[in-house]
Design a protein around this nucleic acid. Structure first.
Lengths: 330, 330
DNA sequence: TTGAAAGCGCTAACAA
DNA sequence: TTGTTAGCGCTTTCAA
């Protein structure tokens, strides 16, 4: 089969038009499926295009159409193997975004905040995953001067559109879960400087207070197993007495469980532990980790739908997604 | 702080130039850090640009420079929560790619094969993750007429550049692992129509043959736990006698272990099982799953390095990465 | 059903 | 150190 040499310069639409004996416009219309082109002409041009290995110059089209059909997704850090269990914004959120974008024939460019600043990609809108600890990220994205939506905590700020799990309700569910197992002195492990985590803690505390139970302590932790391990040790070292722990992620929960075990406390008999995210490993751990499940797939789809609506001039609303408890052995 | 209204039309470089009383070129040079611009001019223009909320039109720049500083990554399917443990090309491969692209100020657009065909993104080169079962994917990517590299099996085809783990060596390591545990009748579970999996099986078989041990059976399976479960049941049902199993992925291995347990066979006492990938869940499973670890992070970085080199006219070589055995309980 | 002209917003090349 | 000219390759608009 004859294919143009890889290094041969790409043929332009103008040249193809010349070869076909028609104008650029006719080629453009033929290849984009415009209905006003005679069928025979279209077919002839299509075959010629194929024979010459013509590929449209997407950059030129983007410029002329003032649209790239591409959405940027800004993530906080680059993904890695070790983190795949501990990242707050995992693969499945991207999966939902991608499905929705794909079915609307939009592409997705993944970028980080520093890269976005240093080398902005050609996009029509942005999805920001995570407000982060401070709000630099939101600020930076705003400055880009294009439509954006945020995954995170709905904070009533009407400036921007947010999609996120109902973290307050998640915290309440975690409290309910522990209370239902007779726990009265419950601790929290996680980084409450993240807005979403702060919401979880708030719901947790509210529900405990309603039930007349204690918040027996809190310990900050990054979203890792090691972080959970250290945080639990700190909690034990300072003499906190607790029979239940709510961890801000499943990785943290696993670390907490390991630390408790190493300290001779049985899980769940002495201390019950519940995590967050229903990460793939939660059910595999021994004991299987109870968790609060977020509907990431749906979240991703909503983010994509809303950013697409925004680029079309609509004004979609922020939205908060229900979460559900997955009781297991811990 | 005053910021231009979000809906105000974006100011162009021409308008900014007028406002600054200089030519477009001077603005262009000032903002891109060209050294020939007087410091005072540059600073003045920068401040004016900030004040007016000027954002460069990336599409226009891409067209003019004939470069997008963006690499496309073509994946076979959209990621999802359920699959995050079973996908052959996980997050960490993307992570490696992203790190390397980011540090070269390149962006990354994620796309699937159908989307790539239906709506090609503006990119300078492509990374194809996985040759797939047939070679449609490679064919499609080739037709795009731009540089590309493939993650997968190095097949001696000089047409394209491939980076991948040494799957044959991985298969041999798996055989060694089982042989060292006294296993003599070993089965294989996985989809050998994938080139990479076929390589694993080949290495496995070779090593077994060298040791005078048997390949006690093979069963096809998709990359899921459920698939592994069914495949192991089929193997048992057809009366195969085996005391070792090599599974093409860790998710498959977990399914195999579950099926064996349900059939009353102890793991590892009756049957030893080793998986592939060293997925995050492998160590968490009970029993912890022995596995062959791939260096995905390095693989991703190499893919990115090679595609960047290609876009700059270099001719990098294909490369095969060593794998290592992670002995655990299974 | 097709074509001609114009220009999207930027930067390379050359000139001053 | 700055400006002028000339496009990059496509599609919109208007005309035939």
């Amino acid at each position: 089969m004859s294919r143009p040499k890889p290094d041969s310069p790409r043929i332009t639409m103008e040249e193809l038009a010349k070869a076909a004996g028609v104008s650029k416009m006719t080629v453009s219309r033929a290849l984009s499926g415009h209905p006003l082109v005679k069928d025979s002409t279209r077919e002839r041009i299509r075959q010629l295009a194929e024979a010459h290995g013509f590929r449209i110059n997407v950059a030129a089209r983007n410029l002329r159409q003032r649209s790239t059909r591409t959405i940027g997704v800004v993530i906080e850090m680059t993904p890695s193997h070790d983190r795949s269990m501990s990242e707050p914004y995992p693969l499945s959120l991207l999966g939902g975004i991608m499905q929705e974008l794909t079915s609307n024939a939009y592409n997705m460019v993944l970028t980080t905040l520093p890269l976005f600043v240093a080398s902005p990609p050609a996009v029509d809108g942005l999805i920001l995953l995570g407000q982060g600890v401070n709000e630099d990220a939101v600020e930076t994205v705003q400055r880009a001067g294009m439509p954006y939506v945020i995954w995170g905590s709905v904070d009533g700020n009407e400036d921007h559109i947010t999609v996120g799990s109902d973290n307050v309700a998640g915290g309440r569910l975690a409290a309910d879960h522990l209370l239902a197992r007779g726990r009265r002195a419950c601790a929290f492990v996680g980084d409450a400087t993240h807005l979403e985590i702060a919401d979880r803690l708030r719901g947790f505390q509210e529900r405990l207070a309603e039930a007349g139970a204690d918040l027996a302590g809190t310990a900050p932790s990054p979203f890792t197993r090691e972080g959970g391990y250290q945080a639990a040790r700190a909690l034990l070292a300072e003499g906190s007495r607790f029979d239940g722990v709510f961890a801000a992620s499943d990785a943290i929960a696993m670390g907490v469980i390991a630390a408790l075990r190493d300290a001779g406390r049985a899980v769940p008999d002495d201390v019950a532990v519940i995590g967050f995210d229903d990460a793939p490993g939660a059910a595999l751990f021994t004991p299987a980790v109870s968790s609060i499940r977020q509907d990431w797939d749906r979240g991703g789809k909503l983010l994509a739908q809303k950013i697409l609506a925004l680029t079309k001039g609509a004004r979609p609303d922020s939205e908060s997604l229900p979460v559900e408890v997955k009781p297991r052995k811990s």
